[in-house]
Design a protein around this nucleic acid. Sequence first.
DNA 1: AGTACTACCTGGAGGC
DNA 2: TGCCTCCAGGTAGTAC
Length: 279
Amino acid sequence: MVGEILDSVEVRHPGVLEGCTARDLAGLVGFRVTAVERRAKYLLIRLGDGDRRSTLVVHLGMTGQLTWKTAAEPTTDVFKRLVSGYRKSVGAHGVDSHTHLVAGSASGGMLLFRDPRRFGRVLLLGDVADESCPRLSRLGPDAWGADPAEMASILVSRCGRRSAKAVLLDQTVLAGIGNIYADESCFAAGIRPDRILSGVSRSRLAVLVRSIDRVLDKGVRNAGTSFRNFVGSDGEAGSNQEDLFVYGRGGLPCRVCHARLRVATVAQRTTVWCPRCQT
DNA sequence: AGTACTACCTGGAGGC
DNA sequence: TGCCTCCAGGTAGTAC
């Protein structure tokens, strides 16, 4: 969508807006999309040039979907069933009661923000620094692609007396890790999610840092983990759910040692781990 | 500086 | 088929 010029912005459910109004968004008509960036779980859509600039910030929450459809692509509600039983969507979802934002472009393209559960948020920064937005300024460095030595020292300095899981989910420590990837990272590093991180050796922390990077990298290469309704910007489901070791597999045998995977609540989130591989 | 809990929402799955 | 309960990729706010 970079290069497109917005010619309509329709907010169908203002509840997803934070700190801005439908009127503010309507003021974006005429702005050109100059770049699309990511900061942790936030998407930054850069708009305008010269003295007219703005940034649309989108967080997808649990079920948010941001899709871009060109004039040539029809919206569709076609689904395929995968071998694993999950439904895979094909193409952008049609506009329905869960579509909260529709932005049209001069070329006939459409940016759609759809979010059944409405935990997602849309913010408008205007022509100010990203850091003036509290949601963004609070974030720690991006977990994906951060310098390993920096990541390790941050984990040491910010672990407190908290469980590994609580630290990984804390977006002010490292930003971008959610429940799925926190569990998968702990498994890959052989660390029990409820283990107090300050008691973990420096060498094991280095393993955790490498594990986080690999787990996130695999998730991205697999175009995301599509439980229920996740789709990418093209409307297509990802395939990482076929590749998980622990998340969503409670009670099933460990893919490495065949021990029965355990489930419990850690840091207020459902957590799965292998009692034999993770110590 | 932590933890624990609540609120925000809808839809799908499973039990009966 | 319908009704019920439980559960879900997240974050902010409040009380302690």
